[in-house]
Structures are given as structure tokens and as C-alpha cells.
Amino acid sequence: MSIEQEVEALKNIPLFANIEPSRLKLMAFASERLIFKAGQELFHQGDAGDAAYIFIDGDADVIVDTDDGPLVVANFGKNEFVGEIAILCDVPRTATIKAKSELTTLKITKELFFNMVMDFPEMGVEVMRVLAHRIDKTTSQLTEARNAISEKS
């Protein structure tokens, strides 16, 4: 797969949807493509975070350690962007990501990510927009959950 295909993949990720293709190409060029075999972990819950990953092909489970052992809480596939929270606010990984099939990713190191945001503020705005959407979504999910609980009780 060449860099052009990676640019295509990046374009499909909402976070980068509005960013100029030449910038995406630079990001693709500067990032490392990393392939994980089924069963390999991208990172483990509690690790320090140094990079985020963009899924180009394949899928992975999101696993959270609970008192009853590891629990798969979600499954991410193509065009997903994971691990960005840890690099944005320096918190340990909140979950484990484990490849379920052969998984092709673009590894965006913390340094690269911040360099890109610094140099291309439009990317920073885009990141803010996506995060705001997530908060909005989480808030509405929270409201829904509250309502559901209050209805039950």
C-alpha cells in the first residue's frame, strides 16, 4: 500500500475530513505504518501514552480491566482513531487495544501530532470540533442514562 492510499484512508476519518490533502500526505509520510498481528496489543491499559493510531485496515477490540477480568467493551474497525486522549492530556491508557485480525495502522506519535496541530491550526480546530461533538454525544448519552435510571426508580 502506498502513501496515496493512506491519504485516502485519512480523508475518511472525520477528524481529518476537512484538512487539505497535502497536509494529510505530510502526516502520512511522517508517521510510521505499523502492522499488528491478530492478538497483538497496540497498548495496555495503564501504560503511559506516547502515540495515537489510525486504523487503515482490520479491526481491534477495546478491552477494559474489571474486577472480573478483562472485558471487551467495543470493537473498532477501519478509519477509527484511537489513543488520542492519552497523548492530548497525558493520562495513562484508559483501555487496552488488541488486534482482532491483522491490523494495519498509522502510528501518530505525540510529537508528530503536536507538530501538526501547531503548524496547521485548522487541524487543531478540527480536533476541537471532534472532541466537542464527543462531549455533546457523551452528555446526551449521560442524560439518557440518567433518565433511564430515574424512570426505573
Binding site: 502492522i35 499488528f36 498481528k37
Partner: peptide, 11 residues
């Protein structure tokens, strides 16, 4: 090794 490590293979 007689070769090069493959780029982009985790670990």
C-alpha cells in the same frame, strides 16, 4: 539476520 527487519511490523 541476513536481511533487513521489516518496517511497520509491531515489535
Amino acid at each position: 539476520l541476513f536481511g533487513r527487519l521489516a518496517y511497520g511490523r509491531a515489535e
